[in-house]
């Protein structure tokens, strides 16, 4: 299990680095998918199969397809690739890199400080029933609020995407105005 964890982590890290460095947007997204799949493997072996499956279904399966869909529609050409290569200049990535470094230090600190307290090795599998129990038990308010937010998003998207009601002939249009 430990070996699988390390392999999956390495795959995730490598593919995430590749996401950042690829110049072609679709290639970058492909690496992002691999990274998500690796993360889902990590979820699976650390006792959260439900979350692992949802990660694949929702993120790798649906959201990334939509990403690629959008990029396909935009049809990014050579210009965007060139702009992308300019993004890699020192001035552009130094500040995000420093911020990420700070986060990394925090993470390492947190891991080391918790090492003594958390019981290592005893893996507890959390199945779908437990997840849904906590979702609709303790966190029901958050779930409902998220549902409302998504609903408003759907209604808004429908309103924007709705077709114009009617096209009058230009003479009639003038008469109506």
């Amino acid at each position: 299990m430990t070996i699988i964890f390390y392999i999956a982590s390495l795959v995730a890290l490598f593919s995430t680095v590749m996401v950042v460095t690829r110049k072609n947007a679709v290639h970058a997204l492909l690496y992002l998918i691999v990274s998500l799949l690796a993360v889902s493997v990590i979820f699976f072996i650390s006792g959260a199969p439900f979350v692992a499956a949802l990660e694949v279904i929702v993120y790798a399966g649906a959201i990334m397809v939509l990403f690629i869909f959008a990029i396909m529609m935009l049809n990014l050409g050579k210009d965007s690739t060139e702009r992308e290569s300019q993004l890699m200049s020192f001035g552009a990535w130094i500040i995000p890199a420093v911020l990420c470094l700070i986060l990394l230090c925090e993470l390492i600190y947190v891991f080391y400080s918790y090492k003594g307290t958390s019981g290592s090795g005893s893996l507890q599998v959390i199945d779908a029933a437990q997840v849904s129990g906590s979702l609709f038990g303790g966190y029901v308010l958050a779930v409902e609020l998220t549902g409302m937010l998504l609903m408003s998003g759907i209604v808004g998207a429908y309103h924007i995407g709705k077709e114009k009601k009617r096209e009058y002939h230009r003479y009639l249009q003038q008469a109506n105005d």
């Binding site: 998918i33 199969p49 439900f50 692992a52 499956a53 949802l54 694949v56 279904i57 790798a60 399966g61 649906a62 397809v65 690629i68 199945d127 779908a128």
Partner: peptide, 16 residues
Amino acid sequence: NIGLLFFLAMSSLGAY
């Protein structure tokens, strides 16, 4: 124990 979800996950990857 998440067999059905696994099926759904794999079929969603098939879209790629």
